[in-house]
């Protein structure tokens, strides 16, 4: 509305600044800009880009043949299968939890809400190794349920269930954390309108609530999947590193690396790096979309 008096215009001047006689009051000098941009780019090159590039360069060090040969290893395939299984259990479980928790927290008032949100964030604050350890304490041989489980010949620790449980723990908060702030911000008016028009609870949820949060939900699911497939510390504690049985992809990377089979280790790692890059691409796409929607909303109809 305020085309001249509003602040958006300031930004336009500050960034286009076509060699003005006087520098804007809030603009940094050219050399400072260059220095800081240089520092940032240098720092990120050393810290982010070089390691990322290293993964792919090391993986292809002995040519594409050696790269693809790494995937012919049956242990690699069993690791991939276990990792996919883990994600296939952990992601839907945390998705169901995230939806339930965000519905209860964002759409209703109740005492203890802040405490509940803090508790949901808890796994985020626990060190990965400790996250694995606590499952050992519950399900391990000398754990709370260890003897009882042994009687029925059920093994959790050093077995697939332990890997899955530890993964569920470390990826627990992500979907809920994406959804709760967004759904709280959106309020309950639309849902109330749907109910008043005769929709039932499921219809309201699937036709009104879900479309409003679909991008955040998608990002939460992707992030959870990426973290579930990439978890190392917690899984390392409960898996026992049994090749072909409890080795996930990241653990398989470690095994290969410790055997000095670097090309194979980096080849398998490149698979995980690509998942990470896809996650970032999706996150960026979601953010751009949001920006565009905001810009369109600001422009108004017509």
């Amino acid at each position: 509305m305020e085309a001249v008096d509003g602040s958006p215009i300031w930004q336009a001047t500050a960034w286009t600044g076509s060699a003005p006689t006087v520098r804007g009051a809030t603009e940094d000098s050219r050399w400072l800009q260059r220095l800081l941009i240089g520092l940032s780019v240098g720092f990120l090159t050393l810290m982010l880009f070089a390691p990322l590039a290293a993964v792919f360069v090391e993986a292809f060090k002995k040519g594409p043949g050696a790269y693809f040969a790494s995937f012919r290893d049956p242990y690699a395939w069993s690791a991939i299968r276990l990792t996919l299984l883990t994600a296939a259990v952990a992601v839907p479980a945390n998705l169901a939890f995230g939806l339930a928790a965000s519905w209860a927290i964002a759409k209703f008032h109740f005492r203890g809400k802040a405490l509940l949100i803090t508790l949901i964030d808890l796994p985020f604050a626990v060190a990965p190794v400790v996250s694995g350890l606590i499952y050992v304490l519950v399900f391990g041989m000398n754990g709370w349920f260890g003897a009882w489980l042994a009687r029925y010949d059920v093994q959790v620790i050093f077995a697939v269930p332990g890997v899955i449980l530890a993964t569920m723990f470390v990826t627990f908060p992500f979907i809920a954390r994406e959804l709760i702030p967004l759904m709280t911000e959106q309020g309950t008016e639309e849902e109330q309108a749907a109910i008043s028009l005769g929709a039932n609870g499921w219809q309201t949820f699937f036709r009104v609530t879900l479309p409003n949060v679909k991008w955040a939900l998608l990002y939460g699911v992707i992030l959870t999947s990426a973290r579930a497939m990439g978890e190392f510390g917690a899984v390392s504690v409960v898996s026992g590193h049994l090749r072909g049985r409890t080795n996930t992809v990241p653990l398989h990377v470690e095994t290969l690396y410790n055997e000095y089979n670097f090309v194979a280790a980096f080849a398998v790692a490149s698979l995980l790096a690509m998942i990470a890059l896809a996650t970032l691409a999706l996150k960026t796409a979601v953010e751009w979309r949001k920006e565009r929607e905001l810009a369109e909303a600001a422009r108004g109809p017509c």
Binding site: M1, A3, V4, D5, T13, V22, G24, A25
Partner: peptide, 16 residues
């Protein structure tokens, strides 16, 4: 709003 008055003031000040 949009008539340019604030811009004129900011130019006098040296903010623009």
């Amino acid at each position: 709003s949009g008539s340019g008055k604030t811009t004129l003031l900011r130019i006098i000040a040296g903010l623009e």
